[in-house]
């Protein structure tokens, strides 16, 4: 998080993590597509010719007119391929929140696991633990055959602490919900640490509502948050910081 007192601007860094080809870039593309032009900047992709993310993608989102603070979200993806470990470590540094995008297909389970361990390891190198990091998990590609069943995921999700979302990123399903869930957790953690709501007369519920609106989802926030199939969304994460 970066706070610019002069311009009264808060910059929050969110990272979409996960194995190669799980749909991280597609998530950003979907967000870019639904976002109001005023809220979203260009989606920047640093990719190779073969269309695989080389370094990262970056989507800037800006929300003004909330309290006395403008909020900028910088949404990153990391390259999933094993060889790009150093880039992942660099991108994930100073992240305020992380969305882990898993591939729902049963035969991708191993890759999801490896990537998650890699995330944990990278956080550790930055002196962080998973517990301290606002984190949601998205099971993407729900439209594909041979995916792990809803019941199986719900069962696992109910035991874990991270909120879990189901998505079909190519059709934009579950994408905004995941983002709102992540932002909710991230804001709670940042507020707990920096007392932002009080300092800046900020109403986080209204802020989330505004974000959802500008991302093309006019539903009330509690309803959007309910899209999550498990885990805890209302934790204030006292461990943070």
């Amino acid at each position: 998080m970066q706070l610019d007192f002069v311009n009264r601007e808060l910059t929050i860094k969110l990272v979409y993590y996960g194995p190669a080809l799980s749909g991280k870039t597609t998530n950003l593309q979907a967000l870019h597509k639904v976002a109001e032009p005023g809220a979203s900047g260009r989606l920047m992709t640093l990719e190779t010719k073969d269309d695989r993310t080389l370094f990262f993608d970056l989507l800037p989102l800006t929300f003004r007119n909330q309290g006395s603070l403008a909020v900028r979200l910088k949404v990153f993806t990391v390259p999933g391929q094993v060889i790009h470990a150093s880039t992942r470590r660099l991108v994930v540094q100073n992240a305020d929140g992380i969305a882990f995008i898993a591939d729902s297909r049963s035969n991708e389970t191993q890759h999801n696991t490896e990537s998650f361990m890699d995330l944990r390891e990278n956080l550790k190198q930055h002196g962080l633990t998973l517990k301290q990091m606002p984190l949601i998990i998205q099971f993407n590609k729900r439209d594909m055959p041979d995916v792990r069943s809803d019941a199986e995921i719900a069962e696992l999700a109910s035991k874990g602490r991270e909120p879990v979302y189901l998505a079909v990123a190519t059709r934009g399903i579950g994408v905004v919900e995941s983002m709102i869930g992540l932002l909710h957790l991230t804001w709670s953690a940042l507020d707990a640490e920096h007392d932002l709501n009080k300092k800046f007369g900020f109403d986080s519920k209204a802020f989330l509502g505004q974000v959802a609106q500008k991302l093309g989802n006019p539903k009330p926030i509690p309803e959007i948050l309910q899209a999550c199939v498990g885990g805890a969304l209302d934790v204030l994460r006292p461990e943070a910081g």
Binding site: M44, L46, F55, F56, H84, T87, R89
Partner: peptide, 17 residues
Amino acid sequence: HRALLTSNMHLASVRES
């Protein structure tokens, strides 16, 4: 910006290696 980032990332990954 993209060019700057790309070259910096190349540099960073070299430095990291």
